[in-house]
Design a protein around this nucleic acid. Structure first.
Lengths: 322, 322
DNA sequence: GCCAATCTTGCATCCGTATGCAAGGCAAGC
DNA sequence: GCTTGCCTTGCATACGGATGCAAGATTGGC
């Protein structure tokens, strides 16, 4: 101790607190010497603010999510928030995890495509605290969400298929009941009809995985009659592409292929996959801004922000000269 | 309030505390009604135990890490620990992040291949707290680590190349200065020499990425004289494989290819990549056990646990009948 | 039925920081 | 030189739960 009160120390480490610059300097310097660090826990207790955001994730297998999480956690770090990770997969004790979410008094909860969480669970988990859904819209809950404009993307793909002269197109769903899939699927089918194209197949992969895409591609081949396939995301598309090539089908000559997300793999020369890019940067920025300005706080009216994406045309839908 | 003391409430939620079962029951039930949850923050403060583990990560792009992190966080959840994520990449304010690690009083720190952290930084970040390195050995620090037996894996690959009749082999490093790479590289080169095989190329990719693998493969092709390539990890190998195929090289006929990690992609039919599997389950189990039994606590002698892996033979090194 | 041992419960205090309030110090204005 | 007002600082208390200690309640043994 160097003869100052505990209050002084507290103020020395509180930006903007009422303390003389010299005293602050003196305290901070001395703290370095004795290796003192303010205890964040105690601070949380008295301020009832934790500077921790709970991030609920459910699918780390799809590279889109690690990429999103990485950016998100960095953006949060930049404004002094830490990320407490809640991994919800089959086999996790849901109730225990969500109650932890409450016990830890996180300042906000970000739920990333937690398809596993049902409406009531979601409501319970986020009750009375700031919350944002990313990549999923709230159905029967009053939650804010940030989501890519799935319909826009699906229409862009349909338009693009039409523009490159395809007329018999197929759609491969991931989990068909997810809001994400429904938006993409409905918009795609509608636009396909508007163009007078034929929907030659509509397959539910039952999961967003490479193997589901592969299986779906084989199914479509077995039926014939398809010259373009829109897979609900890039991982499905990767599996589909490989399956087509394996069967000797030329892409894009015989069948054009498109995905959704623009994961890094889509740009690999081997896949060279046309896809609709989810603007991760912007999604993250918007979500973080919502947390910062409190627009997702419990009292507020929930906001739904749809972020525009961008069609990335690559070789898998190149125009084929007959 | 239902006429009981605050102590009673505390004890009701503390397993093993001295309290009559009926009273506990009553309190817990009432708590449900009024939606009371024990405040973990307050508990941390008085117990000086946070039940939070800091996880320091630096590379979410390589699918191996998301897979590891997912398993790890689930294993921690199972024993009641939460994961606070610290994402360290180029551009993050290292000092601020690491000081957060201290302020938050995490019970333990798990550092996952933080190649970015130098020895001194590492020491400072983990000083006085339980810490484990995963997938990297401590060099000049006194830290416990859990690591796959890289040398074993590299030797297994060399042996396997030899067994399938390859004699002019190349090695492609990721980041050549990382301990992981050095172990794999040295063991591979040594064993190659022991078998009397020729090391036809030794390339440093400068990063563990698809494109680095691709570039390396082109380099090797340009030199000729190689009939098997060992890439330091699967992502490199994937890039390499695609590059070879792109140039019309047959795998495994012309050149056999092996990777390291056994990420899920390695098993995809398109890659069908021989690789050395890092036993994620076991690595996670061991790390979590070390935290649970306190063997990585500050006072203890650091433990180094090398976990045995397994060679997974796939098509990329199939035996070719002449 | 009485005493001792055990089990429950409440009281008081502590964890480390934040902050309202009041007291003291200092500068400007007359 | 005195008053007014702002700037600093310390005091006291709050945040919500954990826990040692002691008092009260219960049980068993004789």
């Amino acid at each position: 101790m160097l003869g100052v009160s505990q209050s002084a120390v507290s103020r020395a480490f509180t930006p903007g607190a009422s303390i003389a610059p010299e005293l602050r300097e003196k305290i901070v310097r001395f703290a370095e010497d004795v290796d003192y660090h303010p205890n964040a826990i105690a601070s949380m207790l008295s301020k009832s603010r934790t500077n921790i955001v709970g991030i609920v994730i459910s699918d780390m297998q799809n590279p889109f999510y690690p990429a999103l999480i990485e950016q998100l956690s960095r953006a949060l770090q930049r404004i002094g928030l830490q990320s407490l990770m809640f991994n919800i997969t089959k086999g996790t004790n849901l109730e225990e995890q969500l109650s932890a979410l409450r016990r830890y008094n996180v300042d906000a909860v970000i739920i990333i495509s937690a398809t596993i969480l049902s409406g009531p669970t979601l409501r319970w988990a986020t009750e009375g605290r700031a919350a944002i859904l990313i990549n999923r819209v709230a159905e029967d809950t009053e939650l804010s969400c940030v989501i890519c404009d799935n319909a826009e993307g699906a229409r862009a793909i349909a338009d693009h298929f039409h523009a490159i002269g395809r007329r018999r197109v197929a759609y491969v769903a991931g989990l068909s009941h997810t809001t994400t899939n429904r938006e993409r699927q409905n918009a795609f089918i509608t636009r396909v009809a508007e163009h007078g194209m034929t929907l030659s197949a509509l397959i539910d992969g039952n999961e967003y995985s490479y193997y589901a895409g592969r299986t779906a591609a084989f199914d479509i081949l077995a039926r014939g009659e398809t010259d373009a396939i829109f897979f609900a995301n890039d991982i499905l598309a990767a599996g589909g592409l490989d399956a087509l090539k394996e069967r000797g089908v030329s892409v894009p000559e015989d069948i054009a292929v498109a995905g959704f997300d623009d994961i890094s793999m889509a740009a690999w020369p081997h896949y060279d996959l046309t896809t609709f890019r989810q603007p991760i940067d912007m999604i993250v920025d918007v979500a973080v801004a919502m947390i910062e300005n409190g627009s997702c706080a419990p009292g507020q009216r929930p906001t739904i922000r749809r972020i525009s994406g961008e069609l990335v045309k690559r070789g898998s839908t190149a125009i084929v000269d007959p």
